[in-house]
Amino acid sequence: MIAEILADTKTRMTRAVEAAKEDFATVRTGRANPQLFQKILVDYYGSPTPLAQLASLQSPEARSLVITPYDKSALKAIEQAIRDTPNLGVNPTNDGNIVRVTMPELTEERRKEYVKLVRSKGEDHKVHLRGIRRKSKDELDALKSEVGEDDLARAEKELDGITRTHVDAIDDALKRKESELLEV
């Protein structure tokens, strides 16, 4: 029973770390990264649809991105969704077949804002990990009558180790993203 709780905790925390890395990837750096645009929601026939489902995203150069819609009628909606997305600071151009996005250079002030944003996201993800830990600890405490106190203490130590490992993984991803953002 304890092993199942710890395995489930490890799985959920690993997914949380992956979600954090994906979230960090959505913050732009100086170069065009298709992941920045993956989660943009486009109003496609009245329903919000992720851009990745409506078009292919390619980065032919370091600071430009080409978006080729699968359905040409979605071109205007894609362009509008990109223009309306906060924190990107880009102005897409539409030539009738594709949408071209050129990423402007980041100012030092903007880079520092992005670092603050990434740190905030990192802290949110660490809070989520601690929530997973708390839930698992409650599940372990519920087993107090079924297992010995030594087993419970050992399981709690292991739970703390799992949590520490995953928090460190988020911190590492955060440091990499910060250095990427501050790189000129």
Score class of each variant (00 low, 15 high):
161 G>N: 13
114 Y>V: 00
73 S>V: 05
166 H>Y: 04
147 V>A: 03
177 K>L: 09
134 R>Q: 12
181 L>C: 03
44 Y>N: 10
57 L>Q: 01
64 S>K: 10
60 P>D: 05
141 D>I: 09
126 K>V: 14
66 V>N: 01
171 D>E: 14
40 I>S: 03
144 K>H: 12
157 K>G: 13
90 V>H: 01
80 Q>A: 14
78 I>K: 00
123 E>N: 08
156 E>D: 14
45 Y>D: 13
128 H>A: 13
31 R>D: 12
86 P>A: 09
86 P>W: 02
100 R>W: 09
145 S>K: 14
33 N>L: 04
54 L>D: 06
77 A>E: 10
4 E>R: 08
61 E>N: 11
183 E>D: 15
69 P>A: 10
173 A>R: 00
168 D>T: 10
90 V>L: 05
70 Y>R: 03
53 Q>R: 13
28 R>G: 09
112 K>Q: 15
184 V>T: 08
181 L>Y: 03
113 E>M: 13
148 G>F: 13
78 I>G: 00
128 H>P: 01
18 E>H: 11
60 P>A: 07
182 L>E: 05
49 T>D: 04
172 D>R: 15
133 R>P: 08
4 E>G: 13
4 E>D: 15
27 V>R: 08
98 I>L: 09
28 R>L: 03
46 G>N: 07
25 A>L: 08
155 A>I: 08
155 A>S: 12
63 R>V: 09
26 T>V: 07
172 D>E: 15
138 D>K: 05
54 L>N: 02
91 N>F: 09
130 R>H: 10
41 L>R: 14
40 I>P: 03
120 S>C: 01
152 L>P: 05
21 K>C: 10
88 L>S: 10
70 Y>L: 08
51 L>A: 04
83 R>Y: 12
155 A>W: 00
145 S>Y: 02
122 G>R: 00
18 E>D: 13
109 E>R: 10
165 T>G: 05
172 D>H: 14
127 V>F: 03
92 P>C: 09
78 I>M: 03
75 L>D: 01
15 R>G: 15
